[in-house]
Design a protein around this nucleic acid. Structure first.
Lengths: 143, 143
DNA sequence: TTGAATAGTTAGGTATACCTAATAATGATA
DNA sequence: TATCATTATTAGGTATACCTAACTATTCAA
């Protein structure tokens, strides 16, 4: 089984990989705000579960299984961020919330969120849904 | 600090309390699908943290602190369920997802969800947002 | 009212995920 | 290339939350 924590580490590693091109235990530790021994341990676990290939003091390489899961998590994350921003959550909070929520949303909910986002984006300009929603939010602010 | 698990137990106890009027360790165990010893332990912990009053083999009584937290969790839960149903998640899944998500949504997101729900409910009949969204979903189903 | 069934607790053990302190490997530079 | 700073790992310990097995308390029915 894959735990919430394994997903968090995998996602962090994936993001560092794409940003920096390489991965250091230290960077993962900094990102997740844990100690390096904690990272070492989890890397071992991820390797045991065939999400990554790892050799001591060496580099991390994703397996196909690992890539698949990492992409899936990233997809859930992005979807949640996009949705949260639509309903008015601040960028920073949207990202933080998405980090936690991404582990728990069911496939059905992911699907519904996707359709909601698509629907909002595909609205014709004259429907003014987003505009009305913004106006509504502003009105509330002024109360 | 209050953990995710403490929240889950508190919520289950709260719900059983309101439904049945009394609380049995067995009922909590059945509801959360854990063993009775696990429940015993957590009850002790909740009592230590002043969310409930408890005496061995006796009844559970919520403290003000406990009531406040339980109501807050329930509020988050209901809000999430209502929202999920609006975007088309099935009743059953909405409830299950809400159980997990309720621990992680930030106050800002809760607020935004609340406003989204209010907005949707307050739409004038001629705006037909919900109707159009439903049509959109049905159209997708037929593809 | 007593004893069997049910309910609840305690004791002891597992797994996850974290930590600090100590040790080992790597890499940069003098 | 030897040394020292940095980085990574190992060893050992904590807390949470779960479990089974054994024990104790309560409840209900004969």
């Amino acid at each position: 089984m894959t735990t919430r924590n394994m997903e968090d580490y995998l996602e962090a590693i994936w993001n560092l990989q794409s940003r920096k091109g390489y991965i250091k235990v230290k960077d993962i530790a900094d990102k997740l705000e844990v100690t390096r021994p904690s990272v070492s341990e989890m890397i071992k676990k991820l390797a045991e579960n065939n999400y990554i290939l790892y050799e001591k003091y060496g580099g991390i390489v994703f397996t196909d299984k690992g890539k698949k899961l990492a992409r899936e998590i990233k997809r859930r994350h992005s979807l949640l961020v996009e949705f949260l921003k639509i309903i008015g959550v601040s960028e920073e909070n949207a990202d933080q919330d998405a980090c936690k929520l991404e582990h728990d949303v069911s496939p059905e909910t992911i699907n519904c969120l996707l359709e909601f986002i698509e629907f909002v984006h595909l609205l014709p300009d004259n429907s003014k849904w987003a505009e009305n929603f913004q106006k509504y939010l502003k009105k509330k602010d002024m109360l």
